[in-house]
Design a protein around this nucleic acid. Sequence first.
RNA 1: GGCUCGGUGGCAGAGUGGUGAUGUAGGGGCCUGCAAAGCCUUGCACAGCGGUUCGAUUCCGCUCCGAGCCUCCA
Length: 460
Amino acid sequence: MVLKIHNTLSGTKEIFKPVDEKHVRVYACGPTVYNFAHIGNARMAVANDLLINVLRTQYKKVTYVSNITDIDDKIIDAAHELNEPIKNLTTKYTKIYNEDMGYLNVRLPDVQPRATDHINEMIDLTKKLIESGNAYEKEGHVLFHVPSFSKYGVLSKRNRDEQIAGSRVDVAPFKKDPADFILWKPSPSPLPGWDSPWGFGRPGWHLECSAMSEKTLGLPFDIHSGGMDLVFPHHENEIAQTCSLNKNHDPKSFAHFWFHNGFVNVEGEKMSKSIGNIRLVHDLKNQFSGEVLRLTLLSAHYRQPLNWTKEIIDQNSKMLDRFYRTLKELKDIEITSQYLSDEIMQSLLDDINTPKVLAQLNTLSNKLSSANKEEKINIKNNLIAAGKILGIMVEDPEVWLGYNQSENPEKEEIEGLINQRNEARRDKDFKLADKIRDELKIKGIEIEDTKNGTIWRKDS
RNA sequence: GGCUCGGUGGCAGAGUGGUGAUGUAGGGGCCUGCAAAGCCUUGCACAGCGGUUCGAUUCCGCUCCGAGCCUCCA
């Protein structure tokens, strides 16, 4: 079976062939840590986590690097506003980011480099770019000279001449070309900075990823990923820097594949501070389980826009409950090995087609009622194996659905009421029986009369 | 103005040159004292207009509409 991935560089789905079959290497541009992560950050983390899981089904060794941007003007502003040292702020939000992503069953990357640990590397790259004639110093700034890179625009498919009309870029006076971007800029006191050949200053944003990806993975590596908005200018600039240093203007001398996830909208609108509709994972944690949030993020294909609404969360919550119910029904079925059917694997390998996988899991789950023993084993195997890759269905079904309430402090009271109701039912006093059921319902207790007696569950 | 990507049933969302995914909501039914859960069943969707084709939702062209990017942004 072959893995196909959409490559932003070509604009098409391509067959994935690793640079080195023995070691697949992926770099994802991570968060700038000055605030809580929002659901859009989470989508990037989940999409990449899944990509890595899928790669690991095909290749023995996969290294996943995702950085933390811990020096940036937004961080400086936030620290200033809160009157808090930058280091405290970035440490705090890095921790929170990892916790929040952990809640969504996102595993930590193998390497999580920080920009501030790579200042020397960045200074070094800047020196080399000046030496090679791709960058110049002006008024304490070092800028990358865009016309020096012949392939500028390959990734975002922009023609520079066509972009200039209608451009809203404010051109700094020290730029030789309006598109030139900052590699290093001065940090007048009290701004944070580091000593450099160009005075006390700090790096521009794009440089860190060029420095850290090369250092942690080597060049060229397989997949470079991030949110759709990073295509331009961030990734375009990274390509310009790294490829200029390589003396090879082919963007594949940097990374072979460029993997970008789509945006999350909220109730049909773009998430933005001014609208005030930013959905923080930190807040969503209070309302929804991690698996529901994760499944909702996977309910649309990763490259499509995802409209975040209460309705789709509910819809996916129901879907997840159904899967868990199927697993509960199959709890006595012994499985010896976990395997994924070729059809489902194929969907994952076809550019990570999660909606199709979910449809296939539903179809499988629907076969339960008419399944024989062998088919039941097949259903359970596939649900568990798919869940493992997707990062869902990792809980115990009884616990998930709320049946297992041995710890519930109200257990005795609830079961007392259920006994009363069953007595009433025996006496054909259905009015009383229904009244008791309503009482339980108010407590969030759902009861089910089965052949083997009444069972109950806490409805979350 | 430029570039890119989209427009699929009430909603969400895959996919395909010919046998009409999947979920959710709705209708009907089974089961149940009634429920819950489950099961069965139902809905003839592919923006519009042309073209290619034996046949197009799927390919091509045009039109309309929407989104993203061109400035920091996942």
